[in-house]
Amino acid sequence: MTTLRTPGPTIGVVGGGQLGRMLAEAAAPLGVEVVVLDPTPDCPAALVARDQIVADFDDEAGIRDLAERADVLTFEIELADQNVMDRISEETGTPVHPKPSTLETIHDKLVQKRELEDAGVPVPPFRKVDDADDIREAIDDYGAPVMLKARTGGYDGRGNVPVESKADAEDALESVAGPAMVESFVDFEREVSVIAVKGDDEVATFPLGENVHEDEILRETIVPARSSEAVTERAYDVARDVLEVMDGRGVYGIELFEATDGEILLNEIAPRPHNSGHWTIEGTQTSQFEQHTRAVLGWPLGSTALRSPTVMTNLLGDVDEEQPAAVGDIDEILGTPGAALHWYGKQQARPLRKMGHVTVTGDEGTDSIDDLLETARELEAAVTFQS
């Protein structure tokens, strides 16, 4: 077995948003340096990473520079160009994890669903959309509403449009503005997610999280999820099946529906740390960001054991229009036992933009999930955005 030492290697990350920032924060105690590539000067990760290369996510020269400075490449945003990364990895010998082939699968939701269905992963009924008539036919077959999804470019709920009736088909397709697919609308009890990790020769899963969305944007994650033991185990089984389809080491955010009949259906996959896993920083022995660091380097994975019941709530831009980012009235968060503030360092606040998050942890047997959720909501509501 190779003896690991610190100071350790350097990870090159395509993307320097909040995920890159928290990845750099987690890597530093391990003696691992992070260099990020992002088109926004002084991006959120720049403050804590070793360095930033200012370049677009598909900039070949920039990614080559990143590869030459790193021992392994990874990405924190799906806008990374898989073809460029694959080519530069071959030319420089710097490996990419997860593999560019996985990124290629993820980029197109229709391709993603087809591959997963072929592998036996349970997914909602879906079909390709070429025109509005395809949406109308889906409504005939699946019933209304249906969910229209942009096949490429959509993330954080962007590009997902509920279609309530056949009369709405034309407008919905126009709003997606590109290749699309349609899914049946799942009658679900709750939305859940498994943060799963592929290591060098091991797999790990974090405790099941329950997610609350509004307007297709994640608002809260509750752990442990309020699901039965049987449903929870089924979610883990599906997540492990998903990992069999994915190629390369790293963290995967696996979003699932718990249907009203108890069945688990796959919603979407993110081949990177995920918003619904931010709670792991305070809530588990090893955070998703440290796990991603360990995994892409081929290091042993850490424990995913739950420290305590945990609730995470996002701090979204509570502004009417874009303005310089600042946050006020955080004294209540800082003064609440078990509460932790994470501010992402974004320079501009926009309506519903993810600016940070708050985590609230409690003692098992003393603090109920409902109590933690109420506290998290009160703390989030007290925060104000100031210009």
Rank of each mutant, 00 (worst) to 15 (best):
R50A: 12
D51R: 12
D51M: 06
Q52M: 07
Q52L: 06
Q52W: 06
I53M: 07
V54D: 00
V54M: 00
D58C: 08
D58P: 05
D58N: 14
E60M: 15
G62A: 13
D65P: 02
D65F: 01
A67H: 00
A67V: 00
E68G: 02
R69M: 15
R69C: 14
R69Y: 11
V72K: 04
L73G: 05
I77Y: 01
I77V: 09
E78N: 13
L79Q: 14
A80L: 09
A80H: 08
A80W: 08
Q82L: 01
N83D: 15
N83E: 14
V84F: 04
M85N: 14
M85T: 13
M85Q: 14
I88H: 07
S89P: 08
S89F: 03
E90S: 04
E91A: 10
E91N: 05
G93M: 08
G93R: 11
G93W: 10
G93N: 13
G93A: 05
P95L: 00
V96I: 05
P98M: 15
P98I: 14
K99A: 09
K99E: 06
K99N: 07
K99Q: 07
P100C: 03
P100W: 03
T102V: 01
T102G: 01
T102Q: 01
T102Y: 01
L103N: 10
L103Y: 12
E104F: 11
E104V: 03
T105Y: 15
I106S: 06
H107R: 15
D108T: 04
D108P: 05
D108G: 06
K109A: 03
K109D: 04
K109E: 03
L110R: 01
V111A: 05
V111Q: 02
V111I: 08
V111D: 03
Q112N: 09
Q112C: 07
Q112W: 07
R114N: 11
R114L: 04
L116M: 15
L116D: 09
E117T: 12
D118T: 07
D118H: 09
A119I: 07
G120C: 10
G120H: 11
P122L: 10
P125Q: 02
F126H: 13
K128D: 08
K128A: 03
V129E: 10
V129K: 12
V129A: 13
D130P: 00
D131F: 09
D131W: 10
D131R: 12
A132S: 13
D134F: 03
I135E: 11
E137I: 04
A138K: 11
A138W: 13
